[in-house]
Amino acid sequence: TEKQERAIEYIRRLGYSEEEARRILKKANGNPDLAKEIARRIG
């Protein structure tokens, strides 16, 4: 989804690889607090 793409872009800007960014997002899917934090940061 567009939100996922924005989140991946944001995480990659922090210096993670695409693969790492996707792994972090997968974790965020099972972790509402982390997901909220990422969403808050990407606006």
Rank of each mutant, 00 (worst) to 15 (best):
K3M: 14
N31T: 03
T1Q: 12
I8H: 03
I42G: 14
R12Y: 03
D33A: 11
A39Q: 02
T1W: 13
Y16K: 02
D33P: 04
S17M: 03
E19L: 10
D33F: 07
R12W: 03
A21F: 01
A39K: 02
Q4R: 11
Q4E: 13
G15E: 01
K27R: 13
I11W: 04
I38D: 03
P32N: 04
Q4D: 09
S17E: 03
K26F: 10
N31R: 07
A35Y: 03
A21H: 00
I38S: 03
R12D: 01
G15Q: 01
E19W: 10
R13E: 15
G30A: 04
I11A: 01
A21G: 03
L14F: 06
A28S: 06
L25H: 01
E18C: 08
P32T: 09
K27M: 15
A7Y: 06
A28F: 04
G15V: 00
I24N: 00
G43E: 12
N29R: 11
E18M: 08
G15C: 04
I38V: 06
I42F: 10
N29H: 11
R12T: 14
I24G: 00
I24E: 00
K26V: 11
K26D: 13
Y16Q: 01
A7G: 03
K27H: 13
E19I: 09
N31M: 07
E5M: 14
I38Y: 05
A39V: 05
K26W: 09
K3D: 15
I8S: 02
R40Q: 11
G43A: 15
A7P: 02
E18V: 07
P32Y: 07
Q4K: 09
E9G: 05
N31E: 07
A35V: 03
E37H: 11
R6L: 14
I24A: 02
G43Q: 15
E20L: 06
S17L: 03
K36P: 02
R6G: 11
D33I: 09
A28I: 04
I8V: 10
A39L: 04
L34Q: 07
A35K: 02
A21Q: 00
S17H: 03
R13P: 00
A21N: 00
N29E: 10
K26E: 14
E2H: 07
L25E: 01
E2R: 13
N29Y: 09
E9Q: 08
K3I: 13
E37F: 05
L34M: 09
A28K: 01
I24Y: 03
K36G: 05
K27A: 14
G15L: 01
N31H: 08
K3W: 08
Q4S: 10
G43S: 15
S17W: 02
L34H: 07
E20Y: 06
R13M: 15
I42L: 15
A39P: 01
A39C: 03
L34P: 01
I42Y: 09
K36V: 14
K36W: 07
K26Q: 14
E5S: 10
K3A: 15
R13Y: 11
P32R: 03
R40E: 14
R12V: 15
N31S: 07
I8T: 02
I11S: 00
A35I: 04
Y16P: 00
I8N: 02
Y10P: 03
L14A: 02
P32Q: 05
L14T: 01
R40N: 09
Y16W: 07
K26I: 12
E20N: 05
L34F: 07
R23K: 13
G15N: 02
A28L: 04
N29G: 14
K3Q: 15
R41S: 12
E20T: 08
A7L: 12
I24F: 08
A28G: 03
D33Q: 11
R23C: 07
E2M: 05
E2T: 12
E5L: 13
R22A: 06
Y16M: 05
R22W: 11
I11L: 12
K3T: 13
A7C: 09
I11Y: 03
T1D: 13
G30V: 02
I11P: 01
Y16E: 00
L14Y: 04
G43N: 15
I24D: 00
L25M: 12
E9I: 06
A39R: 02
R40Y: 05
I8Q: 02
K3G: 13
G43Y: 12
I42S: 12
Y10T: 10
E5D: 11
P32A: 13
K27N: 10
Y10K: 06
R41E: 10
R41I: 11
P32E: 08
E37D: 10
K26M: 12
G43L: 15
Y16L: 06
L25P: 00
A21L: 03
S17Q: 03
E37Y: 07
E5R: 14
R23M: 14
T1C: 08
E20I: 07
N29S: 08
R23H: 13
I8K: 04
E5H: 10
G15F: 01
L25Y: 05
G43W: 13
E37K: 14
I42K: 12
R22P: 00
R22N: 07
K26C: 08
Y10W: 07
R6Q: 14
I38K: 03
P32I: 12
I24S: 00
K27L: 15
E37C: 07
R40T: 09
D33H: 10
E9W: 05
I11N: 00
R12M: 15
E18T: 07
Q4I: 15
E20M: 08
G43R: 15
I24Q: 01
K26H: 11
E19Q: 11
R41Q: 13
I8F: 07
N29I: 05
Y10R: 06
R13N: 15
A7K: 02
E37P: 01
E18F: 06
A39F: 02
G15K: 01
E2A: 12
E19V: 10
L14I: 05
R6I: 09
E37M: 08
A35L: 04
A21C: 03
S17Y: 02
E2K: 12
I8Y: 08
E9C: 10
E20V: 08
Q4T: 12
E19G: 08
A35W: 04
A35H: 02
R23P: 00
I8D: 03
N29L: 11
I24C: 05
G30D: 07
E20G: 05
E5Q: 13
R13F: 12
K27C: 13
A28E: 01
I24R: 00
A28R: 01
E18A: 07
I38R: 05
N29M: 12
A7F: 07
R40F: 05
E5P: 03
T1H: 13
A28Y: 04
D33V: 10
E9F: 04
E9S: 06
N31Y: 05
R13V: 08
Y16R: 02
Y16T: 01
R13G: 15
N31L: 06
R23F: 10
R12E: 10
E9A: 08
Y10M: 09
L25G: 00
N31A: 05
E18Y: 09
A39D: 02
K27G: 08
A35D: 01
P32V: 12
E19A: 12
E5W: 09
E37Q: 13
K36A: 08
A28C: 09
I42H: 14
G43T: 15
E2S: 13
I42P: 08
G15P: 00
D33L: 08
G30P: 01
P32K: 03
P32L: 11
G15I: 00
Y16S: 01
I8G: 01
Q4H: 09
E37N: 09
E2I: 12
P32S: 09
E5V: 09
S17A: 04
Q4P: 05
I11D: 00
I38W: 04
K27V: 14
R6F: 08
L34K: 09
Y10A: 14
I24M: 07
E9P: 00
P32G: 07
N31C: 06
E18I: 08
I42T: 11
A21M: 03
P32W: 07
A35F: 03
L34R: 09
R12H: 05
Q4A: 13
N29F: 10
R13H: 14
R23L: 14
E2D: 14
A21I: 07
N31F: 05
N29A: 09
Q4F: 10
L34W: 08
R6M: 14
A7S: 06
R22I: 10
K26P: 00
I24L: 07
D33M: 08
N31D: 15
T1A: 13
A39H: 02
N29W: 08
R13L: 15
E20C: 11
E18S: 06
N29K: 12
R13I: 09
A28P: 01
R23T: 12
G30K: 04
E20S: 07
R23Y: 12
K36E: 08
A7T: 10
A7M: 07
I42D: 11
S17V: 02
K36I: 15
S17P: 04
S17K: 04
D33K: 12
I38A: 04
A21E: 00
E2G: 10
E5I: 13
R40V: 10
G15D: 01
I8C: 05
R13A: 15
R6N: 13
L25V: 06
I11K: 00
E37G: 07
K26G: 09
L34S: 05
R40D: 10
R41T: 12
